[in-house]
């Protein structure tokens, strides 16, 4: 957890860890896992509200709990930018993390480059092309997935939001706004009028 800010670290220590290693095909064990997911989400959400840092709403969009939808927001220069958030629970969950999507940012979310083989690490790698994700998937590879892999099955959706989505919003929203890729909804309305 080197390089992480102290508030994220402290939030992380307070989110209850999960115990059941179960995915959506595991029947009763998945129901148990879902209960643990909700317990962690409620604790994390309550903690955010208590610290005046409420930043998302999320809930299962189907009875099986395999699809999740909600909203998330980030304040930049005293203005609030709000996005839909959605993801499916992968069939190999929790071995693999959910791939979080912000559908309104389709075509605007950048894919970081990652060499597939360690043999390449000794050579300097220059990314010439910028590749974008489809459907507004956010890049979790560098900052989040190694943590998820190390902490399987103790991490759940709440951890994915805390360590995956929150740092992504903090890093990317200012860039998207400053470059004009994302407009505040008030500005969008006024530009439509003129």
């Amino acid at each position: 957890m080197e390089g992480w800010d102290s508030s994220t670290k402290s939030a992380l220590t307070q989110i209850p860890l999960l115990a059941t290693r179960a995915g959506p095909r595991d029947g009763a064990a998945w129901t148990q896992r879902l209960k643990e997911e909700y317990r962690a989400l409620i604790a994390y959400s309550g903690m955010n509200k208590a610290n005046d840092n409420d930043w998302f709403r999320i809930s299962a969009a189907n009875p099986q709990g395999t699809r999740w939808t909600g909203r998330c927001w980030y304040v930049h220069n005293l203005r609030r930018y709000e996005f839909d958030v959605q993801f499916d629970i992968p069939v190999t969950y929790p071995a693999t993390a959910p791939e979080i999507e912000l559908p309104q940012l389709d075509g605007k979310t950048q894919k970081a480059g990652h060499p597939d083989l360690p043999l390449r690490r000794d050579l300097e790698l220059r990314i010439i092309t910028v590749i974008m994700y489809r459907g507004g998937k956010i890049c979790l590879t560098v900052h989040f997935k190694p943590l998820w892999a190390k902490n399987c099955p103790r991490f759940g959706i709440a951890h994915a939001l805390c360590l995956g989505l929150a740092p992504w919003l903090a890093a990317e929203v200012p860039i998207l706004v400053d470059s004009g890729m994302v407009k505040h909804k008030d500005d969008e309305a006024s530009s439509a009028e003129t």
């Binding site: 894919k111 480059g113 990652h114 597939d116 083989l117 360690p118 043999l119 990314i127 010439i128 092309t129 590749i131 590879t141 560098v142 997935k145 190694p146 892999a149 190390k150």
Partner: peptide
């Protein structure tokens, strides 16, 4: 494959392989 190829600790590796 990375583990097979190099014998390194799997947990130290980034796991995604995009092809740019």
């Amino acid at each position: 494959p990375l583990v097979v190829a190099s014998g390194v600790d799997e947990r130290t590796l980034k796991r995604e392989g995009v092809c740019a």
